[in-house]
Write a protein that binds this DNA or RNA. Structure first.
Lengths: 218, 218
DNA sequence: GCGTACATGTTACCTGCGGTAACCGAAGTC
DNA sequence: GACTTCGGTTACCGCAGGTAACATGTACGC
């Protein structure tokens, strides 16, 4: 019951937890998002129940793992957003940061984007209802909120700024994500080109473009 | 071995298949995307193996189910894109069409967005590699490609139009999707407001906005 | 009439996964 | 030396996807 004792144990537990997370990381990097608890436990050199003691359930492990990467990515993005440069440059650098991240570790990225979703362990099949919304990858949501905050803090679009900022935050993140996802799969162009194209889109080139000759126009 | 015979059987099989799909639809609508094969079979009044005979595996059923809804949604979107109105109006109406659809049947929408992904049935754990990319919901991909095509057909943005159109197509679809997903979960505003905000974003209001007084600007 | 071929459907099973209960040994403490 | 308390294990449950093997009806050729 000694306090220092407690602290000692706490510390060791925390270290263990970190080790487990690193192992999980390695497995996810190797096996993709459908990495099983067994596999992760094996990689860590232990067995399942320990994992469950540390993280509760698969969702808990996922959450912990996601935290790490999400935090890391978000801080990179923050840095890009806060760099001393004009708006366009910063938008481009933010896009590029994100794309570079998913390019570097696609497995992790996949894992982060597709959480376990619904899992009623056993028994209750009613009552779980349908929690549409809130099912989406926390990473996307957090990025969206973060971006919304930055926009709201720095941009002046008149009344309703707050609302607009949130819509835009989530919208832009979604654009980035979808384009990145597609790009990773097909690699139709270089990262730089993709960044430029997306920034152009955000810069209103869609509305500024001419209709094609001969058609009714888009 | 008679031909008419074959056709008869074919026809009946097709009808059965449609019935099964409708049953699956009902279950998905009720239980969400984690509807089990057992549940679907029960709803259809039959048992699992029949489902497997008709659709191969869960992915096959998913694909068939997705086809229907995706086709339906895409044709609505096409209609909105092709309506006789100016570009802005058409963009707004397309956004609204999509949002109305996911609002009307969120369960189906969730099902479509989160396919089964990787499932190595048993045995092989090597060889499956990691097929990053192409994992994303087919619906999003198809919408992206469709939109890209429309953009490319109708818009003139000089050289590199084709590439740009595809990036924009996927990007805009992603924007729409992410914003819609978030909106469905939080309902922070009306659909019309959301549509306007998104259209404003696409119309370059982000780049046109002033910096907020006192800050370094976004 | 009867065997045969085939599509439809069933029961009963296998595997693997998430998750848990119950037990085990090595410490540290009194 | 008994007593708790970690870190750990084995062995199991329930459920999901998926399949094999067995039943049934029903059209056909003969």
């Amino acid at each position: 019951m000694d306090t220092t004792q407690r602290t000692d144990q706490q510390r060791s537990a925390d270290r263990r937890r970190r080790e487990l997370l690193e192992a999980a990381d390695r497995v996810v990097l190797r096996d993709g998002p459908q990495a099983s608890m067994n596999a992760i436990a094996a990689e860590a050199g232990i067995t399942k129940p320990i994992l469950y003691r540390h993280f509760g359930d698969k969702g808990g492990l996922y959450a912990a793992l996601a935290q790490r990467h999400t935090d890391a990515l978000l801080s990179s993005l923050r840095a890009a957003l806060d760099a001393p440069a004009d708006r366009r440059e910063r938008v481009e650098s933010t896009l590029d940061t994100y794309l570079a991240a998913i390019e570097a570790r696609p497995q992790v990225y996949r894992f982060l984007m597709h959480p376990a979703e619904g899992n009623a362990p056993s028994g209750d099949q009613a009552e779980q209802g349908f929690d549409v919304g809130k099912h989406s990858a926390p990473l996307l949501r957090r990025m969206g909120e973060e971006l919304a905050q930055v926009i709201e803090e720095r941009l002046d679009v008149g009344p309703g700024t707050q609302q607009l900022a949130r819509v835009w935050g989530h919208g832009i993140v979604g654009m980035m994500h979808a384009a990145g996802d597609w790009w990773l799969g097909e690699r139709p162009c270089s990262r730089a080109e993709l960044v430029t194209s997306l920034a152009d889109l955000l810069w209103g080139r869609l509305s500024a473009a001419d209709d094609k000759a001969g058609g009714p126009g888009f």
